[in-house]
Design a protein around this nucleic acid. Structure first.
Lengths: 156, 156
DNA sequence: TTTATAATTCGATATTTTCCGATATATCTT
DNA sequence: AAGATATATCGGAAAATATCGAATTATAAA
């Protein structure tokens, strides 16, 4: 057994939660549940639906959804873990998009059909078009300032 | 406004969790997330998949999945809340089945396609056939004894 | 009515998840 | 090199969820 196989095995073992142990659960069932958990969260679901039409970088997503950048980053990580997204790095920017192969899966197809019909998702996508019209540095700096504005004001 | 409308409104208001408030979330998005949460749980997912071929009563499900009856009851309640299942009462037995209309929804169709391919789910369904060959009282009493057997033994 | 049976709800603990500011890392620019 | 910029990870308190025995409710049988 190779070293990285061993590492993967250890990871999988550690990743088994208590609640999963109680039910006799196979790896395949576990994997499906993990995918469902990844999308059963308002922000993560919106992010996934937002990326269906095409890739966006982290700060673009943060700006569109008006959410702290660290929250977006964490949402993307979970969706990547579940196998829905891939990242493409370009300099300091990280673009995320839906894994093409996954788009064919019954679950994701059904989910995106249902999500795409939601007014909230359609609004998000409309807003994404506006944000994409701006330059990325502009959007990124806006997002940075947004979190900086939350600092408690220091007096003179 | 009718009384029951007011009650429903109050319920919806109370049902809004903290995490849902943080993201600006519409009712429709909330509803979809609730559906996904309902199925992103190993037992609940197995129960839903188990019921696809046809209705079963609570004790039959408990026997097939070898799980405490109260856990099954709670799983069924969540799946009903999410709109996936309906109940049919016959005496003291409660039979649950998938809402026919829901079977046409993209999400549930995709989910059941994916779940139905899992070996664990196929095994559950095979076991359901065996259990259905027995009379319901037989199965129910077996389930009762199963939980009774977990009592700490009293000595002489 | 009393007893038995099937299912639900409760109670209480343990575990998991969420959230975001603060901090760290990685990459570009000067 | 130092500074700026974009993203990732951490910390840890608050909220939500899971679990299952015990108590409760609802229906049926004796």
């Amino acid at each position: 057994m190779e070293y990285h196989d061993l590492q993967a095995l250890i990871w999988v073992q550690l990743a088994r939660s208590h609640s999963e142990e109680v039910i006799g659960m196979t790896d395949e069932l576990r994997a499906l549940v993990e995918q469902l958990k990844a999308v059963s969260h308002p922000l993560r679901l919106r992010v996934l639906a937002l990326l269906e039409p095409g890739e966006l970088c982290v700060c673009q997503v943060a700006e569109v959804l008006q959410v702290p950048q660290s929250s977006v980053s964490e949402a993307l990580r979970e969706l990547r873990r579940a196998g829905f997204l891939v990242e493409r790095k370009d300099g300091r920017w990280v673009f995320m998009s839906v894994v093409p192969k996954k788009k064919a899966s019954p679950l994701l197809k059904g989910l995106l059909t249902e999500a795409g019909a939601l007014p909230a998702v359609q609004q998000d996508r409309a807003r994404a078009l506006e944000v994409k019209a701006l330059s990325i540095p502009t959007v990124c700096s806006k997002v940075q300032k947004l979190s900086a504005a939350d600092q408690k004001p220091t007096h003179v």
